[in-house]
Nucleic acid binder design. Structure first.
Lengths: 351, 351
DNA sequence: ATGGACGATGTAACCGAATTCACGCTATCT
DNA sequence: AGATAGCGTGAATTCGGTTACATCGTCCAT
């Protein structure tokens, strides 16, 4: 069941078999046919390990994410994988669970498997780790982190713009007291969004009380608990912005349990736009991160990143991705004021 | 940056380096230390491909799922990965997207990478595919499919029991007209649940009208549309059972949009118990598939499946996993009847 | 003293492909 | 006819580890 057996059966050398497998043009059509038939009858399966070893190329793209349990990531993974496969690449997924030890383990795995490139979609990677890849001339693309640096492509989601859209929407609906539920603030990604909120908040001259910002954990239970704390505040905000949809959904649970209505009593806006957000009750108004674009750009950065001639990594390109505001029904006019606010009907299916 | 360089620096043979890496007991402690220091200073990273090729073992466990976008699977993946890593194995994930072509592609990937075992968590694999693994003496464990066969371990979720629990719960609340939203009925997994529903329905002598069963697609939008069809029925059912939580959440959207209340006007029960189900409004009553148990048993089956002496696969063990009924708030008494039904309060956090 | 057992290490074959280089054959040009 | 180019093919090397087997002391029992 190896190339040698195929070669013997087809009465050619192993080199010819290898060439046939790889679609080399310098194999005559009938030889190729003979080889293919031999592979067929032997049920031949290529050994990827041997191929990678022999050729020095693995055909693998690494994808490091923080938490596969957060629906945003599977959606991203799927998009990434679809594109990668269409380019003849495979994907190696690793998740860090926000844990530095595990992160290091993920990086090691990528290195060990000799990936052709890595997309790092978690910001919890200390910068010095990058050098591991750079030293080996492995293209890297980062989502959403840190300073520009030579040789590193970065995809930046324009969080400030996203937050601004949400804030604009809310202020236009008359909201002045807007709360924020952040992710765990020891994470860079969470800090970025938090800062965007603070800046926008200041720009709009809103009351940015310290207790208006509560820390969640990017998961529903964190949003639930954070919202409970917010609801217990003396001066309750009329709107809440959350750092991701999961948090928002958890927060909605707490709001309902307090006997309040969304959006009549309190408005809420999420971030990410996961599939389910269109199906909550009410459907969640959110800021979509266009994950397909992210995936597309990431792969483009990875595969286009090597100068085809010198094989040296090109200088890292910087990409900026614009979030898209998705008005649904969880955010409405501030209570007690008459605003024209149209309820939308069929907004669940056409996301 | 290969073993040879390390060997030279540490002044030993490559064999000794290899032994050190693999923790062989027959390396003297100080030699091992010397080798390790050499690896350190050279920033040595093992080449997994070469290792796999040389040793014939890949240390990889394959995991084939149908749709990474359905939150049930990431939860399963995570559990599986956690356990695998604790056993020193890595996980290779592949998803079929319910697509036969892609399924074949997944199987090929597993074969090519020479996995040490495969957990097939999608039922959309034609039985003949198994022979690919069996022929190569690769342990296989199936979730939830087909007939017992020698050499194949199977994990069977007791769907009939799960459906029965839900049905019992509903009938005790007075429901007689119970609808079912199935998965795509061309899939085995969906058919299994559908049949369980039909049998249970018959057992309870319920009106199993044909139009009470509507086909979804395992995703929210399918549940939404299916529910719209059900709501348009002349005699509307008072309760709906769905084939998974995603479907249930979609269906809830349709119910709310029709101006109905859950559970006062209509009860709904899901299947799976994904994280989010505790945070919908109302929290979703569902039948939990204990995914951690599934993962644990799967790995146990895979790793324990080879006779340690003969290296022949042992006869496939059969495991049965009992679902767990999770009463929350989306199912209540049949409308118009007085039933004692206690609303639960803090059921979101303690899933 | 001697043979054997054992522990630590080295030597070299091997895993299954990819790839370089050489070679033979045919077709074309002068 | 002889030089030349090109195409299809094969032999042999290489990739980076693992591992069976060989080697060499050392220590102990006889």
């Amino acid at each position: 069941m190896n190339i040698k057996a195929v070669a013997k059966l087809a009465n050619v050398s192993t080199a010819t078999v290898s060439r046939t497998i790889n679609g080399s043009p310098k194999v005559s059509p009938d030889t190729a046919a003979r080889v293919r038939k031999a592979m067929e009858t032997l049920n031949f399966v290529l050994n990827t390990n041997a191929r990678a070893l022999g050729s020095g190329r693995s055909n693998l793209l690494g994808l490091i994410i923080s938490d596969i349990t957060n629906p945003f990531f599977p959606e991203l993974v799927k998009a990434f994988e679809d594109i990668a496969v269409s380019q003849g690449k495979e994907v190696l997924i690793a998740n860090t669970d926000y844990d530095p030890d595990r992160t290091m383990h993920c990086v090691t795995r990528m290195l060990q498997r000799k990936v052709d490139g890595v997309a790092i979609m978690t910001s919890e990677i200390s910068e010095h780790v990058i050098s591991f890849f750079l030293k080996r001339k492995i293209p890297v693309v980062f989502l959403d982190t840190g300073e520009p640096a030579p040789g590193i492509s970065r995809i930046n989601i324009d969080y400030p713009a996203g937050v601004e859209m949400a804030m604009q929407y809310l202020t236009q609906l008359g909201h002045k007291d807007i709360s924020f539920i952040s992710g765990p603030l020891n994470l860079n990604s969470a800090k970025t969004r938090y800062q965007a909120f603070m800046e926008s908040s200041a720009r709009e001259h809103l009351s940015a009380k310290a207790e208006y910002v509560q820390e969640g954990n990017h998961r529903p239970d964190g949003g639930y608990r954070a919202m409970q704390r917010i609801l217990a505040l003396e001066q309750r905000p009329t709107a809440v912005l959350t750092s991701n949809d999961l948090t928002a959904i958890g927060a909605m649970g707490a709001i309902f349990e307090a006997g309040l209505r969304i959006p009549q009593d309190i408005s809420i806006i999420g971030f990410d736009d996961i599939q389910l957000s269109a199906f909550t009750e009410p459907p969640l108004t959110t800021v979509r991160i266009p994950h397909k674009d992210v995936a597309r750009v990431a792969i483009e950065a990875l595969l286009g990143t090597q100068d085809p001639i010198s094989k040296e990594p090109k200088d890292g390109a910087q990409y900026k991705i614009q979030p898209i505001f998705m008005p649904r029904r969880s955010a409405g006019p501030v209570p007690g004021e008459a605003h024209s606010f149209k309820r939308r009907r069929a907004d669940r299916l056409h996301a």
